[in-house]
């Protein structure tokens, strides 16, 4: 149904407009992470990616 697509798009756009100032504030005020900090993030995310691939194999 086309009206559902339009309503969904409008809701997402509203959400984007609501989040934009918060995102900009967080971009400007978030502390910078070291390479060790980023590794501490990347490694568990890679594990999650592998886990999702395993789930796909199980379907």
């Amino acid at each position: 149904m086309d009206w559902m697509k339009i309503v969904a798009a409008l809701a997402l756009i509203m959400f984007i407009v609501y989040l934009f100032p918060r995102a900009r504030h967080m971009m400007e005020n978030s502390p910078k992470g070291s390479s060790a900090d980023w590794m501490g993030f990347v490694v568990p995310i890679l594990v999650i990616v592998l886990f999702v691939m395993l789930l796909v194999q199980l379907v």
Binding site: L12, L19, S30, K32
Partner: peptide, 25 residues
């Protein structure tokens, strides 16, 4: 571990995903 440094990155990533989701509707 302190993951406060991820805040800006995650929010911008989320906004980009929302824009992509609007396009894909």
């Amino acid at each position: 571990k302190d993951f406060s440094f991820l805040g800006g990155f995650l929010m911008v990533g989320f906004l980009l995903v929302l824009v992509a989701a609007v396009a894909n509707i």
